[in-house]
Simulated scan of single mutants.
Amino acid sequence: MSDLKSVSGARIFDGETWYDGAALLIEFGYVTSIVASADIPGHAERVVLDGGMIVPGFVDLQVNGGGGVLFNNAPTLDAIRTICSAHAQFGTTALLPTLITDTAEINEKAIAAGVEAAAAHVPGFIGLHLEGPHLALSRKGTHDPSLIRPMDEDDLLRLCAAARALPNLLCTVAAETVPPKQIARLVEAGAIVSIGHSDAGYDQAMAAFDAGASMATHLFNAMSQLGNREPGIVGAVLDRPEVHAGLIADGIHVHAASMGAALRAKQGPGHIFLVTDSMSQTGTDLKTIELNGRTITRADGALRLADGTLAGADLDIIDAVNFVIDRLGLSPEEAFRMAALYPARAIGVDDRLGHLRPSAEASFVHLSGQRRVQSTWIAGTKVWGAD
């Protein structure tokens, strides 16, 4: 019995090229080719969509929660399932559940849950993002200052072991708190190191990148800024071609003009990509969230602590895509790459994620002509939608 499936009835964007009157052919969860609709093999199972477009599934590398669950509050396999499922309705087909600064015990539970999720092949789960606790107090943001601390040898060994046990491990650290030698050991173990929640200067940031750090966490937010005599982390990221950076494109965390300037300034092969930094509210009507004993309030498109500090984002990935198209004037093609190909490339999984070329995982989103999510598919199986 053949496992061949064809999906047609919509324009197809493979990450680089548009195809009209074509079908996406899928076998055993992977793309085999894109062919003219008239050339669909007779034995293929046919799925015909009602117009719109098929684009590569979105990849979100900073997801604190969703579906009413905050990963810090429930570092479990079930929580990971809920978070992945909640984000699927917005077109996310691959994500990193993200643990905000917490105790060593919670970190260990989160890592164990990630190992379980990988073994269970949870749809959408591709690894973990540990954001802290080895950050700078001066750029703590919503992270609990009582839990922020330097990285000791036990922490380092735990993270190195996690990097070897998980499909992907992204670690956000401060360049002035975690020295280059520790960064180099993490990278050698297989971790992706991102600089964030850091007040480091340009030279410190460049030393971290020299040691193997390859990313910056939510560009502009919780980091030293670009100045006339001190370029800071923002300047280092823009000056370092191979470094990638996440961006919260909600118009609240970063001014649209600053986003546009950074996108115009950034030279590749590293790219700026979209993240949601979403909390447990995604996919729910929750108005308040608890984190480390503190209340986060959802209002006016933002999540804030009582003192007004931004605490994650009230954002889903399709709204971020539409923001950079509608507000920044980016082409839809580039916006789709910022949500799919570039984050996949940032963690080295672009051989199978972020595009729909042959041998890629058949994870895609069916969007309407107005770029609203109609259905979401992971490895050739529909996980959300009524198509």
Rank of each mutant, 00 (worst) to 15 (best):
I252C: 08
A191V: 04
P145N: 02
A245W: 03
A216C: 14
P150D: 12
L156I: 05
G196L: 07
V254H: 08
M206H: 05
R240Q: 13
N221M: 11
G235W: 04
A207D: 13
A174T: 07
I183A: 04
A211H: 11
L159W: 12
L147Q: 14
L159D: 06
I192M: 01
H197N: 07
A216G: 07
S194F: 01
L157T: 15
D199H: 02
P241F: 05
A249K: 10
N221P: 08
Q225F: 02
L226A: 10
G251R: 12
P180G: 04
R164M: 10
Q182D: 13
N221K: 10
G212H: 09
G227W: 03
R185I: 03
S194Y: 05
A161D: 15
G201T: 04
Y202D: 02
M151A: 10
M206K: 15
L169E: 00
H197T: 06
S194Q: 05
G235M: 02
P241L: 08
A162P: 06
G235A: 07
E153H: 13
F209N: 07
Y202Q: 00
D152W: 10
D154F: 07
L166S: 07
P167S: 01
Q204A: 14
I248Q: 10
A211R: 12
L247P: 09
I148S: 08
I192F: 01
V193Y: 06
P167A: 01
R185G: 02
Q182Y: 03
A165N: 11
P179F: 03
Q225I: 10
I248H: 09
P167V: 01
V187I: 11
L186H: 09
S194N: 05
H143T: 11
T217F: 09
N168H: 12
P145A: 06
F220L: 12
D144T: 14
P179M: 04
F209M: 08
R149C: 11
A184H: 02
D154T: 15
R229I: 01
A205H: 01
T172C: 08
A245L: 09
R164N: 10
A163M: 04
R185D: 02
R158A: 15
H255R: 15
N168D: 00
P167Y: 00
L156W: 05
P241W: 07
C160A: 14
A175I: 02
G232P: 00
D250K: 11
F220H: 14
D144P: 01
I192W: 01
A249T: 09
P179G: 13
L159C: 11
G246W: 05
R240Y: 08
G232H: 02
L156H: 06
D144H: 15
D203E: 15
E188W: 03
R185N: 03
V254M: 10
D250F: 11
P231L: 02
V193D: 04
P145R: 05
T177Q: 13
V178P: 04
L157Y: 07
Q225R: 12
L166G: 11
A245D: 05
L170A: 00
L147M: 15
G212D: 06
E153G: 09
P180C: 09
H255I: 04
M223H: 00
V237E: 03
I195N: 02
D152T: 13
D154Y: 05
S198I: 04
C160S: 14
D154A: 15
A208C: 09
H244E: 01
I148P: 10
T217A: 11
F209S: 07
L156Y: 03
T217Q: 09
A162I: 10
A208D: 04
Q182H: 11
Q225M: 12
L166K: 07
G190Y: 03
M151T: 10
